[in-house]
């Protein structure tokens, strides 16, 4: 937990410094007719910098070691990653084959492998979800979902 606290505070501090340098570049002060573009970001960066520095110092002073609560509960890291990584994979797939095919593949793999559900249920969800979303979004609400590089050719309708 302590290491995570320190890392996040450091990350926020870096963001603050980057924004600070950009704001100074844009002009943090008074222009011809009012505050310049960098004015608001400059002070935000100052506020973020001070508060993250405070959190950082607090985190460093806090007692760490073996007794502290870990960031992940036992086995938690694996459980979180089994949600996070397939999601990233599905988005990558979406770029290639489009939303509908990607969601079919993602659902079938995820429900079958991590959920260990039977094939009939897996396939039912995997096929029905893209179909229902197609009619709701594409037809009813006229929201066109991403087709990816090849989706248009794979689903020509």
């Amino acid at each position: 937990m302590k290491r995570a606290e320190v890392l996040v505070a450091l990350g926020l501090l870096v963001v603050a410094l980057v924004v600070l340098s950009q704001a100074i570049h844009l002009g943090p002060g008074w222009g011809e007719d009012g505050p310049r573009a960098g004015f608001f970001p400059f002070w935000l960066a100052v506020v973020l910098g001070v508060s993250s520095l405070w959190v950082l110092v607090q985190a460093l002073r806090a007692p760490g070691g073996a007794g502290a609560r870990p960031f992940f509960p036992v086995g938690g890291r694996r459980l979180v990653l089994t949600v996070f990584l397939p999601m990233a994979g599905a988005i990558a797939l979406l770029e290639v084959v489009g939303f509908y095919i990607a969601s079919l593949i993602y659902l079938v793999i995820y429900i079958r492998l991590t959920g260990r559900q039977g094939w009939p249920l897996t396939l039912a969800v995997g096929v029905l979800f893209p179909l229902i979303t197609f009619f709701i979004f594409e037809r009813w609400f006229l929201i066109l979902l991403p087709k990816g590089l090849f989706g248009e050719r794979l689903l020509p309708f």
């Binding site: 949600v83 397939p86 999601m87 599905a90 988005i91 939303f99 993602y106 959920g115 066109l144």
Partner: peptide, 25 residues
């Protein structure tokens, strides 16, 4: 409804929500 079915469905709906804002992946 088992969590392994709900989780990917919610993630896909979230993806639609995020995409529909500006139509960018």
């Amino acid at each position: 409804v088992p969590a392994p079915i709900l989780t990917p469905l919610i993630i896909l709906l979230s993806a639609i929500g995020a995409y529909a804002v500006k139509n960018t992946t």
